[in-house]
Each structure stands twice: as C-alpha cells, then as structure tokens.
C-alpha cells in the first residue's frame, strides 16, 4: 500500500484495494440475499415456494399470498387486519405516554443541578439493564389480579415501563447537545422554565424526540416476549401473530414471507426517517 492511498482514507483500508471490495461484496451479499429471498418468495405461488431447485424470480408473480395471509388471520392462524390495528394502537399510546413523561425528566437531568441527580441517572441506567423477563413475571401476576390481561392497558403499561429508562437516557443525550446560550437568551426574554422547555427546547430537540419516539415504537412493534404474556386473542399484536404462523408440517412459506414483509414495512419506513440520528439513539446518546 502506497503512502498516497493511505492519505486519502487513513482510518480505513486503502480505498481502492481489491480485498476491500471483495470483502464488502461478500458481506453485502450475506445481508441482502435473505431480504431478496423474502421479497421474491412473497410473490410466488404456494407450490413454487417449495420448488427444487428454487427459482430466483417468481415464474408466475402473484400477490395472492398477501391477500390470503390477511384472510387467514381471521381464523386465529396468522396475522389479521385486527392484529395490525392492535399493534398500531399500542405503539402510538406507548410512544405518547413514554416520551411525554420521559422528556421533562430528561430535560431536568440534563439542565437542573439536582442533589443526587447523577445517582438517580445511574439508577435509571440499572433499570435499563434489568432483563425484561424479570419484570414480565411479576407484572403478569399484577395484571391478572387487576383483570387487565388481554387489554390494551396491560400492553401499554408494560411497554411504557420497559422503554422509559432507555428513553430518558436517549433524550438526556440529545438535550446535553443543545447549547446553553439559547436557553439563557430565552430566559432573558422573560420565559419561565416551562416556557423555555416548550418554546425553545421542544423545537430544538425535535430530532431527538422523533428518534426516541421511533425507536420506542420499533421496539414495541417488534416485541413478542411481553406481548405473548399480556395479550391473548383480543389485543394480539402483529409480532405474536407472525410467531404463530407456524406448523411443523405444512408451513405455507409464500404466505409466511408475504406476512413478514407486511409486518416489517412500517418499521423500515420509520427507521429510514431517522437514519441520521440512529446511532445516537441506539447508543442512548453515548456516541454522537
């Protein structure tokens, strides 16, 4: 490797090395092929999805799998339209409550100089590290006692709780990055602290709030551990329905793939919206 290529990209491998492109090619194939396979097979007929040797493009492309997969959900086998409504309701309520409560707390942790605030923050971090299974077992008994199993509140309460420590840390990370001068200016103009929070901080922290909201929503949408415990038939979300698309002997793979595509499309759409802030979000603001 010559000095010249090093200068162009000294942190990485030389930018024009063959090795680099071969390696990237193999890795990208590893990432992309399963995705390609999912999409292709969702457009195949039921029998073609079992064909040997497999076909790389559907011979008779059809959207039948998408139609039947939703129709089959009506018979509690698979994912129904109802399951999508459930997931959407739970995600929206969770995000609104979770971010609504976490944002003021994060603002306070970031800006107020409170006695014991670093200890409280450490405590929040510890809560984030506690595996969900620890909370799920007693929460199940509590919800049973309250008669809330298989209702929206059971799911929403559980998800708000499990996401809050993460949301607080993430938003604190974003708030820490907002310059203090702007806030001082607002104070001099006669804003109260709540005024500063809503008029200055809120707009400035919108990227952070959006990132937080979307990451909480994605986590909630994708979860099965909590949902399987708290939901039965009435409020069953998409993820759980997807997990039940499963019989050892005659799994209808074309339909399974179609349903999977439907189930992950919203998540992918929202993830691309916050792509720029994803790193800070996923590391709870620890890495910019």
């Amino acid at each position: 490797m010559s000095q010249k290529t090093q200068n162009r990209s000294p942190r990485g491998l030389a930018s024009n090395s063959v090795l680099r492109w071969v390696f990237l090619g193999i890795f990208t194939f590893f990432v992309a092929f399963p995705l390609y396979w999912m999409i292709m097979n969702s457009f195949k007929t039921g029998t073609e999805a079992f064909a040997t040797p497999p076909t790389f493009l559907p011979m008779q492309p059809t959207v039948l799998s998408y139609v039947t997969s939703l129709a089959m959900g009506q018979h509690s086998y698979g994912v129904s339209f109802r399951n999508f409504v459930n997931s959407i309701v739970v995600c929206i309520c969770t995000v609104v409550i979770c971010i609504g409560l976490s944002a003021p707390a994060a603002y306070s942790f970031s800006r107020a100089r409170l006695k014991g605030s670093s200890l409280m923050l450490l405590f929040v971090l510890l809560l984030r590290m506690v595996p969900p299974i620890v909370i799920v077992v007693p929460l199940y008994s509590i919800m049973r006692t309250l008669g809330l199993i298989d209702t929206y509140p059971a799911l929403i309460i559980a998800f708000v709780a499990l996401n809050m420590p993460f949301a607080i840390w993430l938003l604190k990370g974003f708030y820490d990055g907002i310059p203090r001068d702007l806030v001082e200016a607002g104070m001099l103009d006669g804003c109260t602290h709540f005024g500063v929070f809503f008029r200055i901080f809120f707009p400035l922290s919108l990227p952070g709030l959006t990132t937080g909201a979307i990451l909480v929503a994605i986590g909630t949408w994708n979860d099965i551990l909590v949902s399987m415990v708290m939901a039965r038939e009435k409020v069953k979300p998409v993820s759980v329905g997807l997990g039940l698309l499963d019989t050892q002997f005659d799994t209808l793979w074309a339909q399974v793939m179609a349903t999977s595509v439907l189930a992950i499309l919203p998540v992918i759409f929202f993830a691309f919206l916050v792509q720029k802030n994803l790193v800070r979000g996923l590391t709870m603001g620890a890495v910019r």
Partner: peptide, 18 residues
C-alpha cells in the same frame, strides 16, 4: 439497517425457511 430494525420474529421465520 433493514435486518437491524426488522422484528426478530420475521428474521427468524425468514431464516427458518432458508
């Protein structure tokens, strides 16, 4: 980003098929 954000349930089904 796609495999990273997709539901593990969906990823699991996809790979089980493969």
């Amino acid at each position: 980003i796609v495999p990273m954000v997709m539901a593990p349930v969906a990823a699991g089904l996809l790979w089980r098929y493969m």
